[in-house]
Design a protein around this nucleic acid. Structure first.
Lengths: 335, 335
DNA sequence: TTGAAAGCGCTAACAT
DNA sequence: ATGTTAGCGCTTTCAA
């Protein structure tokens, strides 16, 4: 049944079935130009021998690997995990596999990962979450492999992307707080040097406050995680006990803030409103239920992957820059 | 700079540098048998031409792809996301990439994923979380590709694995509840047909209760998620308001239970103790902070991947069946 | 409908 | 230290 080698190849099947390699290749690839009898014969031999096509050889010959590379900041982050699920589901649907790698948002790591993925001859590349620099553009532009950016955008390089309107979503959240009658609003931001999310959301806050001629400098910078939200809130309450609302740039920080407020005896939402960002599962697994901006994480991944398949198939693209809708999701931390 | 084709190969570099392909291959692969001058020359040509080695061709020739397949139930699940991070970090450390695919614990999907991964000639396979059946064993046994199971175990097939003692951990949790003086203990279990986690944890509960000659049939079956925990607790409180402790088979269900109890006016931990399972981030992001069994998720992934590298390198293996330690992590939902 | 044969880009003996 | 060469297992013209 096996050959000396142990691996049985298309050649073995051909010999055993009394046909040529080409014919075996045809039946394996579903080419219709094969006489039904022949196909049946070949198929049965394949079954008997337990033949398994070698995708690497196929990749070399056909110049297609049916795998796409995914560079993501951190898979252990709920937001990116959900987004990745969207990617993977669509990839599977189109018969692609994904090679996943974490960048931790580190510039040089990102570049070397991209390099490695291109060496592996991925058919396409999904780049998530990091800021696009000239280094990125250079390497992206130099390859013919389709690239789609997800949850980040780039206008200089003209690369396709799917993301959300970060700044606008932030503005809406703050506007809502304002509409509640809150005026002493503070922000717990993410890292401001994060040009992709942190800074735009910060700008959204600034803008909304300016528009209403309200002070906009109660900004506390966190790192996006629970603890930093807790700490920011604690300081905030010390320095500005009169604060009546906070917009947090992530749900985790928002929840940290809720608990800090609670520990200071501040009642939510009676005395203080809080709005988060993303609507990760956590938001609806804490009490009070967190009001937040709902970001279509799964869809960002799914749509980006779908877009990538279009590029890989050389289909015509109608829109290469897509912004998905966010929605204010009001629960119990707002009035 | 480029050739007509667009892709520049090892042959182009060789010609341009005035050496043979073999020599270029040597410098690319860090073979020491190259005169420094030659190496320098080749390297410079590689730089000029922007040569990028084709890993697919290399894989075909060397029969090594430096990629491993990972079959995981669901990457959007916090538990598996963290575990995957452990896998990926170690994989990167040993210069492997991972192809990730979600099985949703579906038998047939698992098998077809494994098949696909083997076609792609992965150097190794990590299989997570699902029950091992004869179908799995058959395909695992038929390949020479090293397989390591993670967070599941198999004794019939003799495949290496790294996991935890599910039943024992559950017993310890229940024993703790008992040691608190609680006697009317209930369990909110995961799916009991889950032979890998659900059932063993259930057995742990049964065992501990039997050992103390206490009734062990207040068991409510959930699906592991928040909502099911909430519902189970709600029913539990209706049917057995005298219940004084609950052991939940997952943190999410435990948190759901906390909130259900809260909604019924039951005080935790005064009237009722709750212990969860896993210690995902959520456990320390809710109030009261959840007491739970801390499972080394990251380490399970990391150790499994490390073990896999040993198999791939044909190193000698000291232990092919590793159980990692769990620990009772007591916080505010127990006395 | 089928087969023959030329690669795909690289590695790995084997020579030199 | 370097070159030659035979594959690796498949796809894909091109003929037949």
């Amino acid at each position: 049944m096996d050959k000396k080698n142990g691996t049985i190849t298309i050649y073995d099947v051909a010999r055993e079935a009394g046909v040529s390699m080409a014919t075996v290749s045809r039946v394996v690839n579903g080419n219709p130009n094969v006489k039904p009898t022949t196909r049946k014969k070949v198929l049965s031999v394949i079954g008997q021998l337990g033949y398994r096509p070698n995708a690497v050889a196929r990749g070399l010959a056909s110049k297609k690997t049916t795998t796409v590379g995914v560079v993501i900041p951190d898979i252990s982050n709920a937001f990116y995990a959900e987004l990745t699920r969207g990617i993977e589901d669509i990839a599977t649907m189109y018969h692609y596999n994904i090679i996943l790698s974490n960048s931790d948002l580190q510039h040089t790591k990102e570049l070397s990962l991209i390099e490695t993925l291109l060496e592996k001859q991925v058919d396409g590349l999904l780049f998530l979450g990091g800021e696009i620099t000239d280094d990125h553009r250079k390497i992206f532009a130099a390859t013919s492999v389709p690239i789609v950016l997800a949850h980040t955008e780039d206008h200089q390089g003209k690369f396709p992307f799917v993301t959300i309107h970060q700044q606008q979503a932030a503005e809406e959240a703050v506007e809502y707080l304002l509409s509640e009658g809150r005026e002493k609003i503070s922000m717990i931001s993410g890292p401001l040097e994060d040009k992709v999310k942190g800074y735009p959301r910060y700008l959204g806050f600034k803008n909304a406050m300016k528009k209403h001629q309200l002070p906009d400098d109660w900004v506390y910078e966190g790192d996006g995680r629970y603890q930093s939200g807790y700490q920011a809130m604690t300081r905030l309450l010390q320095e500005h006990p009169e604060c009546s609302a906070v917009f947090a740039a992530s749900d985790e920080m928002a929840v940290g803030a809720i608990h800090a407020a609670h520990d200071q005896g501040v009642h939510i939402p009676e005395q203080l409103s809080i709005i988060g960002f993303n609507n990760i599962p956590l938001a609806s697994q804490v009490r009070p239920l967190l009001s937040t901006i709902q970001v279509p994480m799964y869809d960002i991944g799914a749509v980006a992957m779908r877009l990538l398949t279009k590029y890989m198939n050389r289909e015509t693209i109608d829109t290469s820059e897509v912004y998905l809708e966010t929605m204010l999701c009001l629960r119990d931390t707002t009035k």
